[in-house]
């Protein structure tokens, strides 16, 4: 039985088992390796994608449940190779280290900032409770996010 997935605006049919985690289809079949399968149990957030605009972990999302939903991966955030304003802020603040968590973190933050354009430091931290970073100790990422949010407010 074929399942139809809408990923980054394109439709893909797959014959994989309906319980296959979405992250495996993204990585193995579609070469979208931005989402990382680090823990496969929803704690690390490295495989976060947007489903109908909301962040979800693609390691615990069966493709059957993703069918018919609008899935956006980290690759869609910098469409055409242009970094999103948030990604640019993270680049300019030089906060990346090994980088494995950043695709998931960027996806989660993009969605969070869309609904909370002017967050407090604590709100940003709470929004990242499902995104582990082992390298950076978080605070400089949060500095960059707050500076970005402020710049976006200032810029109208």
């Amino acid at each position: 039985m074929s399942i139809s997935l809408t990923i980054n605006g394109e439709t893909h049919a797959t014959n994989r088992d309906p319980l296959t985690p979405l992250v495996d289809v993204l990585r193995d079949d579609l070469a979208l390796t931005g989402a990382k399968a680090v823990c496969r149990e929803g704690f690390c957030g490295a495989c976060t994608v947007l489903m109908d605009g909301q962040p979800v972990v693609s390691c615990l999302l069966p493709i059957a449940s993703a069918a018919g939903r609008d899935i956006r991966t980290v690759e869609a955030l910098s469409d055409g190779g242009e970094l999103s304003p948030l990604q640019k802020a993270l680049e300019q603040h030089d906060v990346v280290q090994c980088g494995m968590c950043f695709p998931g973190m960027t996806v989660a933050l993009t969605s969070f900032l869309a609904s909370n354009p002017n967050p407090t430091r604590e709100q940003v931290k709470q929004s990242l409770v499902g995104n582990i970073c082992r390298c950076t100790g978080y605070e400089r990422i949060i500095d960059a996010v707050l500076a970005h949010a402020q710049a976006m407010q200032g810029g109208g």
């Binding site: 957030g45 909301q54 962040p55 989660a108």
Partner: peptide
């Protein structure tokens, strides 16, 4: 409960 991405699903 859990974390934001899990609460969404």
């Amino acid at each position: 409960a859990a974390n934001p991405a899990i609460r969404n699903v």
